[in-house]
Amino acid sequence: MDQMLEISILQLISAYLFIVILLFIVRLRKIPREKEIIIATLRMTIQLVLVGYVLMFIFENERWYYSIIVLTIMETFAVFNIYKRTKQPLSNHLKKMIALSMVAGTLFAFFYFDFVVVQFAPWYDPRYFIPIAGMLIGNSMTGITLGVSALVEGFSSRKQEVDAALMLGATPNQASKGILNHAFDSAILPTINSMVGMGIVFLPGMMTGVILSGASPLDAIMYQIAIMLGVTGAVSISVILFLYFGYKTFFNKYSQLSQ
């Protein structure tokens, strides 16, 4: 296979025509979204250019600490993003549990992936380390966000049921079982669904990238399969950790629902 075709600056600029068309339509229909579209396009462009330079620098200067720094930034960003994306107010205790399970779950799955499955050489090789960590973290972030919403929502809408179960002598764990199962379900479902549709409904970005860069499709699917399994692992471990620690924050030491 050949090397990837390079896009010239001029060709790239021609792609912005899509945005121009969009802006034109929006103006014609008098939909007040021009500002948002322009800002989003600018942000996307600037952020990607910056990331391109940062990655270029990191790829040229392979150091374990650069990889670790990037990993730390991604984890931090993911945790704060979960806080921001959850509509309901979160207790400080719950926030701690979110951070803890997010970091512990993704790191465990990622390092297993790094040292056992793919065996990056060296282990911090940024070409593998950064994009793969990004995928595991990004998917776990979505999973935990869904799990948090379902958990908080469950404890508010099914409060009576939990209360009734406690009155009958249920442990907090037994009393939360229905809520926990539902939360796990909604957190994990998107990942399961994406496995089902994989390859037929869509080619995932990672595989597209690998194919574009000139690798054979067979190599690309090997990676994609490994990554889907890794993603599923990371999402389920972090969600299970979160639910396991998270439900306890809704109870006090006397096994009562905290106010």
Binding site: D163, A164, M167, L168, G169, Y254, S255
Partner: peptide, 12 residues
Amino acid sequence: PVQLRRNVVMLG
């Protein structure tokens, strides 16, 4: 508390 509630059962 859990053991207590198994002996002192409540109907809300």
